[in-house]
């Protein structure tokens, strides 16, 4: 089995150069770690999640999607102070789901991207919450209001970000 960054399905698939494949997630992780120090509200955004969703939807390959999510999530866990695997599991699920959805639906327009990002933000939150509560015994409070608002904010940022990242897409 060969895992590549492209897939050939019915819908159009894209690939990315190696610098973009490595650099964009690293930049997202860096910004996520650096910017909230100056602007605390930025911690409500989850740039690594948005990048995971973008790559997964663009490649439309569930395996590369889940692997991208797993790697980004694990690195994000490593930067944080909690157990490694919380973000990893959540982003693996999101990567798999986003790429599977990308195979079946056209998620190129802004409206679809907004809804997909909102949905996956909530899924990410639910998985994280479940694992953190169930396995690590962390005390987390789930708030639908907070989650939906943060999801909308992330979705709006995601639409802008996807537009910028579209420039790096390469047709197969």
């Amino acid at each position: 089995m060969q895992i590549t960054y492209t897939s050939g399905e019915q819908v159009e698939v894209y690939r990315f150069s190696l610098p973009v494949t490595v650099g964009v997630p690293l930049l997202a992780l860096f910004l996520q770690a650096f910017v909230p120090r100056r602007f605390p509200f930025f911690s409500y955004f989850d740039l690594p999640l948005l990048v995971t969703i973008f790559f997964a939807m663009a490649r439309r390959n569930p395996i590369s999607g889940l692997l991208t999510g797993a790697v980004i999530g694990l690195v994000q866990d490593s930067i944080g102070g909690h157990a490694i695997g919380l973000y990893g599991i959540a982003k693996t699920v999101v990567g798999f789901g986003a790429s599977s959805l990308g195979v079946k639906l056209d998620v190129e327009n802004a409206g679809a991207r907004l809804l997909v990002t909102l949905g996956f933000y909530l899924i990410h939150g639910v998985v994280y919450f479940a694992v953190a509560r169930g396995m690590v015994n962390m005390t987390l409070n789930w708030s639908w209001g907070h989650s939906i608002l943060a999801g909308l904010a992330n979705a709006l940022l995601g639409v802008v970000l996807y537009f910028l990242l579209d420039k790096f897409k390469q047709r197969t």
Partner: peptide, 19 residues
Amino acid sequence: NLIILVGVLFLQVLGLAVQ
């Protein structure tokens, strides 16, 4: 795809359990 997903998730859950 599902098998790989389950495998990757299983590995992470295992690692989490060890931690």
